[in-house]
């Protein structure tokens, strides 16, 4: 235990240093790479806070998928030759911004250092939800997401569907129903194809595993779905598969299946268990896994479609 505090301090310094580099880098691509490294380091900080579930999410989304999103966006901006990006603010503004940022960070640090003891906690309620009749979930976070705060989780999946709809709507009218631009225009080289052929099946298997063990161990529907989404994106980058047309019925059904099944089971709870989002004790766990299966599907489809962007073509002047 004597080395651990030193490791903590080193990790903290490293996270802040990489974050500073991300902000200071001159080049957009360099700063995106910094951000990916930052996401992975932050996942380690989460593990030290006893939050492996958040660490998995941060590594998959903060590091991986957001990195692909920003790299793809940077490449597409380059292709548009849209170089004008406004002038940097004057020195006076920068100094003011620095002072304001330092003030905010200082105030936040003060708040963190003076949090009340004993800290307020909802852990007993979460424990009750986890051990709830018939649920028997070993992972309290899954219990909170699906049972104690079920409504939040369902709305979050609706937000995903709305974001995809918003991104599609940004495309040109004439392109509606078509496919998004490929993640990579160029023909991929052999190494990328080989990587995708080997990595994607293994990654997909691990994704399903993380979802399945999420009931009792760190993991869950979102983390597993994000991994499946990443594997689909790897396959799309290697051009092994192409992005589907946004008019495809199967794609749309997969997108809304998560929130739709969740809502349907929630409504059925009124009849079967007496309240909205209540699960009948006899088969609560089976129902929870049933809902989560469709949530995995929705997440695995929504994330790549968000990265792929609006349908291509039909640019109006």
């Amino acid at each position: 235990m004597s080395v651990l505090p030193l490791l903590d301090v080193g990790l903290a310094l490293l996270v802040v240093a990489v974050a500073t580099w991300t902000m200071a880098a001159r080049d957009l691509f360099a700063s995106v790479l910094g951000y990916v490294a930052y996401g992975l380091l932050l996942a380690l900080v989460w593990v030290r806070l006893h939050a492996p579930d958040i660490g998995l999410t941060e590594a998959a989304v903060g590091g991986g998928v957001t990195g692909v999103l920003l790299v793809t966006a940077g490449k597409r901006l380059d292709a548009l030759k849209a170089a004008t990006s406004g002038a940097a603010p004057r020195l006076r503004v920068k100094i003011l911004a620095g002072a304001l940022s330092a003030l905010v960070a200082g105030a936040l640090a003060f708040v963190v250092a003076s949090l009340p003891t004993p800290a307020p906690s909802l852990a007993p309620q979460a424990a009750a939800a986890a051990a709830g009749p018939g649920a028997g979930l070993g992972n309290p976070i899954t219990a909170v997401l699906i049972s104690y705060r079920a409504f939040d989780t369902m709305l979050e999946k609706i937000v995903l569907a709305l974001a995809v709809l918003g991104i599609w709507s940004v495309g040109a009218d004439a392109a509606w129903g078509g496919a998004p631009a490929p993640l990579r225009k160029a023909r991929p080289d052999g190494a990328m194809v080989l990587l995708a052929q080997i990595l994607a099946p293994i990654g997909a298997l691990i994704g399903v595993h993380i979802f399945w063990v999420g009931a009792d161990a760190p993991g869950g529907a979102f983390q597993g779905g994000a991994l499946l989404a990443a594997m689909w994106m790897v396959a799309m980058m290697a051009r092994l598969v192409e992005a589907p047309r946004i008019g495809s019925r199967a794609l749309r059904l997969a997108l809304i299946s998560g929130p739709a099944v969740f809502l349907a089971v929630g409504l059925a709870g009124i009849a079967m268990a007496g309240s909205f989002f209540a699960f009948p004790p006899a088969f609560a766990k089976a129902l929870i896994l049933f809902i989560e299966t469709f949530m995995v599907l929705s997440v695995a489809v929504a994330l790549p479609m968000m990265v792929a962007g609006p349908p291509e073509g039909g640019q109006e002047p």
């Binding site: 006893h50 579930d53 958040i54 986890a130 309290p140 909170v144 705060r149 939040d152 974001a163």
Partner: peptide
């Protein structure tokens, strides 16, 4: 740990990504 804030952070990361993509 308190599982409720942790679950909310997971939801937050997802929603933040959706907003970034938009």
């Amino acid at each position: 740990f308190d599982p409720v804030p942790q679950a909310m952070v997971i939801t937050g990361i997802v929603v933040a990504f959706a907003a970034s993509a938009l």
